[in-house]
Design a protein around this nucleic acid. Structure first.
Lengths: 236, 236
DNA sequence: TGGTCATTCAATCAATAGCTTGACTGATTG
DNA sequence: CAATCAGTCAAGCTATTGATTGAATGACCA
């Protein structure tokens, strides 16, 4: 392999291989919500600690995530290259050419129309018009790390209990961690069954942020307070 | 893995794994030039026949290529999903986060400015103004399968011999199989050393075609004549 | 219908990847 | 400074992947 072309392709392939593992894609999605410790990421994905740690290092070597030390914990966040763009291209390709993907979605969440969600542009326009409620169904701690401005946070787990906060007369747009985050699919299914006019946002929080759009945070924490925010991070 | 989210991620990962192999990426680039037999693709990539065949089948299962039978040969061409878009995203990510990629390019082809090529938009505008020559340095058979309209085809191997066909006073834009096709890099390096004003097009032929821009062909062959075109396909 | 050509299939082998376990390191806390 | 906590490292095991070889298929041609 002294051929420069093969070397280049080998570099590309190396990156693709890193994405070629479901667990790593899942870790990546969680890291894209904001900084998280290894333990939390392991917990969220259901992986063993050592396994998660190893996968995170693979992701880091490829630049998909970055890490920093905060006391005795290691915090991982999304890398700063066009990671979301790459994942988006992968998703769009999968939606186009893999019947399985569309199949899974419709099998679990019914209607194919879940695949025709509201785009960022439409959302921006609709919110500008004053109509509509934007609903963030992620756990509180993820919401706190960053969310779409003006969004109402009702974690999916609390949805039943807090129905009163949602209007029945205007359209609701729900979003969560990414285009395939189950929470928003389930929220749409559940609320639609109850007669709400609700649609899913095509993107999740990371895509919004990657597009350079404004992001809200609960408390302005340029460098999150150590033990405080850590102990708050426990919902879902 | 009965979890729909994991299933989706597993689907994505499966696709990424298919791209996670340099040989397959190389086959894909060649298939993107136009329909090619397994034998030709094996030849172009230097793989054994059986090996190429197997890789092509992996690519086909993932929808990256399609195949059809033509007599006793099997012709593979690019699939019809957003393949080029996905590869483009991978390339842009690699350029951003892999020093190795930039390193290889500058190590082999000198100047980093090879990484700042002419974009499609700039090319279109420049050609519209009437200035500039567009140079296709791919082998003749690939040129015949499709090329940018108005391009002059001088295969890289013939470049030295056919220098007279190139103007010294106007800017030349060279392209070949894709953003990292070595031919155009080498053509730029060689001609620049001889005093020509030459730049590389950012894209190659497949990207141009994928963008829906017009494509020229040497002979209009909706279904290429069997033995004729096969025997013509033999350069480089 | 037998021979040939292009490709695929099947078997095999070495190399690699993913996961687990238990030991190790580095920072904090009492 | 020992104990603890968070994460990483190293070793080992199994499953998967990529490549090779030779046999099998499918289409054409004489």
């Amino acid at each position: 392999m002294t051929n420069p072309k093969s070397e280049i392709f080998e570099q590309f392939a190396e990156l693709a291989r890193v994405l070629g593992q479901g667990n790593r894609l899942e870790l990546l999605e969680h890291a894209a919500q904001g900084e998280r410790s290894v333990e939390r990421l392991a917990q969220l994905t259901g992986l063993s600690l050592a396994n998660a740690s190893q996968h995170l290092q693979v992701l880091r070597r490829a630049g998909f995530v970055r890490s920093r030390r905060d006391g005795k914990r290691m915090l991982y966040r999304l890398g700063d290259g066009p990671v979301i763009e790459l994942l988006g291209a992968l998703r769009r390709y999968a939606e186009h050419s893999r019947a399985e993907v569309r199949g899974i979605v419709s099998r679990y969440f019914g209607r194919l129309d879940s695949l025709e969600p509201v785009s960022r542009e439409v959302l921006l326009q609709r919110l500008g018009d004053g109509g509509g409620v934007l609903l963030d169904v992620r756990p509180e701690d993820e919401f706190a790390l960053g969310h779409l401005p003006g969004a109402l946070n009702i974690p999916f787990a609390d949805l039943e209990r807090r129905l009163a906060e949602l209007p029945k007369d205007t359209q609701i747009v729900a979003y969560c961690r990414g285009p395939y985050c189950v929470l928003s699919f389930e929220a749409v299914a559940a609320l639609r069954a109850k007669g709400y006019d609700i649609k899913r946002l095509e993107d999740g929080f990371p895509e919004w942020k990657a597009a350079g759009l404004p992001v809200g945070t609960v408390i302005a924490t340029p460098r999150p307070a150590r033990s405080l925010s850590a102990s708050a991070a426990s919902s879902r």
